[in-house]
Design a protein around this nucleic acid. Structure first.
Lengths: 143, 143
DNA sequence: TTTGATGCAAATGTTTTGCATTGCA
DNA sequence: TGCAATGCAAAACATTTGCATCAAA
């Protein structure tokens, strides 16, 4: 059995063609953050006979299983990325959409302290920084 | 002229009944964070003959004018709150929906450093912490 | 009076669901 | 074979838009 089939099984999911295809899309995509529609288009373009509903169902199952992480930047459509184990937050360029992942232990520590000081038990958080990246194109548009 | 009419004018908005009513809702609501639908229902319940489209239009105008702040917690419907001048982020109870505002200068500072270190010019950010608040009810449900 | 604001209904975009059919184990 | 997974279409949901009417300056 190949690796991808193994990944599905070890996450308690039956091995089916659509699930393998979706997994493949994420493993081969040059952009790590994909919306449901982008995944769907890539599959259709690749010749798959798949429905958008199935894409949504699979993305949710993968997210529930911990294989994908779902984020919704600022009320936009949701995007999914492979969960590679290390927690991180996002830095997004408002012009070109480029996404950089980062992890800052000082912020994480402060978040816990903030929650504690208000009597909360912290479960999770979302944090996205929006700015202008250092590409010439984006710096120009910013003016 | 009353205060609310004055607020509208000073923000460059014509004084109309629907706008006064929406402003009133926010100033009198025990919960500071309201969705468009919640505002709409309060208005209809209060006897106003208003359309949901108008509510959305007014909320957006108020947000553009800096009178309201719009947040979308984790892909949910957007919520609005009165902008009282001080920047803050949110701590949300996943059980009862209680929202606490906080400001942490250390986090703000680190966010700027993170953006800088990746060549970004930081414009804004969203951050929400999700946890369980210290009410007996919520602590029970959490188990 | 004149332009902008409103209410209604219809359109939009994203995501979910019902149900008959298909395909893994 | 049996039950879960799928495709399709329709529904659901939040939000936006077109347009005729209404109201504030």
């Amino acid at each position: 059995m190949n690796t991808q089939a193994h990944i599905l099984k070890s996450n308690g999911l039956k091995v089916t063609l659509p699930r393998l295809k979706v997994l493949e899309i994420f493993e081969h995509s040059p952009h790590s953050h994909l919306s449901a529609d982008e995944v769907y288009r890539k599959l259709v373009d690749g010749g798959s006979d798949i429905g958008i509903a199935t894409v949504y169902r699979i993305l949710m199952q993968f997210a529930d299983a911990g294989m994908l992480r779902k984020s919704s930047f600022d009320g936009d459509r949701a995007v999914f990325e492979l969960e590679h184990g290390h927690h991180h937050d996002h830095l997004v360029c408002v012009h070109c959409g480029k996404v950089v992942e980062f992890f800052n232990p000082l912020i994480e520590e402060q978040q816990n302290l903030v929650a504690q000081s208000h009597g909360f038990k912290l479960l999770e958080h979302t944090m996205a920084l929006y700015g202008v990246c250092d590409s010439a194109d984006c710096k120009n548009k910013a003016k």
